[in-house]
């Protein structure tokens, strides 16, 4: 087995037979070409379904490409064919109604999401999360569906979507089915999508009468989130507040911190409540050690970020004079 370690732009490679590390540029080694594959751009869902069924294991869905093309470049995957789903009208666009909620086509770009007026007004936590996702040029290409389907811990949009109780609509050979986003993740790079299934859109329930969300992260500008926490409070007409907390890069996949949420909903307001909730979130986290941070650092930052988030939300709630 050849081991690659990627440092920003280039990599060093360990060649076991020689037992040494050598500098490597995958791209130049191949003479400046990606590993060859075919490309198909279906224009109807029927065509897309046929293609997905035909290609099964050898086909990879292409949306924004910021993950897929990078993995091809690094030779982590070698698909036979890329199926570009950007030509499917059913996967495009954002629609909103006060009673029906929000529907996001899977190929909606992060930039388009963050610029949409209804999203800004009623689901502002999605906008905050979008602004923390990669750099502008990534946000201009990366899609809502892609950010979910890569099933990576450090994705920024899913924690916010989890806070809004998002549902994924999957289209397969048997028809369409819905799965709550919280049940979509099976592990890192593993989702509930069956072979041949396609994420068509993500829907969010109607907005609460009032809601406020905060998304705090550890990250350098333009780079991947090292660890992050989304906190959302919702109020219907009464005084009771519903809380949501979801974490980025703190577990094998984006994760809700249910116990911390329950505690916030039931405990006496005050500093002790915030501390306890932050502690419960830390306990829920199952962070990994990797090149960006240690598990220990991540866990301790979960506590800090969740506390900051709750404090920001509480301040905002009290500012409204209840």
């Amino acid at each position: 087995m050849v081991i690659y370690i990627k440092f920003g732009c280039n990599a060093i490679r360990r060649i076991p037979e020689m037992n040494e590390w050598t500098y490597s540029d995958f791209y130049l080694e191949r003479g400046g070409n990606l590993h060859p594959f075919d490309y198909a751009k279906p224009t109807s869902l029927a065509e897309a379904r046929t293609l997905l069924a035909q290609t099964a294991a050898d086909g990879v869905v292409l949306a924004g490409g910021s993950d897929v093309l990078r993995r091809i470049e690094e030779e982590v995957i070698r698909p036979q064919v890329l199926i570009d789903i950007k030509g499917l009208p059913e996967l495009r666009g954002i629609s909103f109604s006060v009673h029906g909620g929000l529907s996001l086509g899977a190929t909606t770009t992060i930039s388009a999401l963050a610029a949409h007026n209804d999203v800004r007004r009623h689901y502002s936590l999605l906008v905050k999360a979008s602004h923390q996702l990669g750099s502008l040029r990534i946000r201009n290409r990366a899609t809502v569906g892609g950010n979910i389907c890569v099933a990576l811990p450090q994705t920024d949009l899913p924690p916010a979507l989890l806070c809004y109780d998002a549902t994924c609509h999957l289209l397969g050979p048997e028809g369409e089915r819905t799965v709550p986003l919280s049940e979509c993740y099976k592990g890192t790079r593993q989702t509930a999508l069956e072979p041949g299934e396609l994420l068509v859109r993500v829907t969010l329930p109607a907005p609460a009468a009032y809601s406020y969300g905060a998304y705090h992260t550890v990250r350098q500008g333009g780079q991947t989130t090292v660890v992050g926490a989304a906190v959302l409070a919702r109020r219907a007409s009464g005084p009771s507040t519903e809380w949501r907390i979801a974490l980025a890069a703190a577990a094998p996949y984006p994760l809700r911190a249910y116990e911390a949420e329950t505690h916030l909903a039931s405990a006496e307001p005050g500093a002790a409540m915030v501390e306890k909730a932050a502690e419960l979130a830390m306990r829920a986290a199952q962070p990994a050690d990797d090149i960006r941070a240690s598990a220990r650092y991540r866990r301790s930052m979960v506590g800090v970020l969740v506390r900051r988030g709750i404090e920001e939300v509480i301040e905002q709630l009290s500012g409204r004079g209840r």
Partner: peptide, 11 residues
């Protein structure tokens, strides 16, 4: 829109 040309296929 600004994008990375390395992350887009020519096709």
């Amino acid at each position: 829109e600004v994008v990375s040309a390395c992350m887009i296929l020519a096709v």
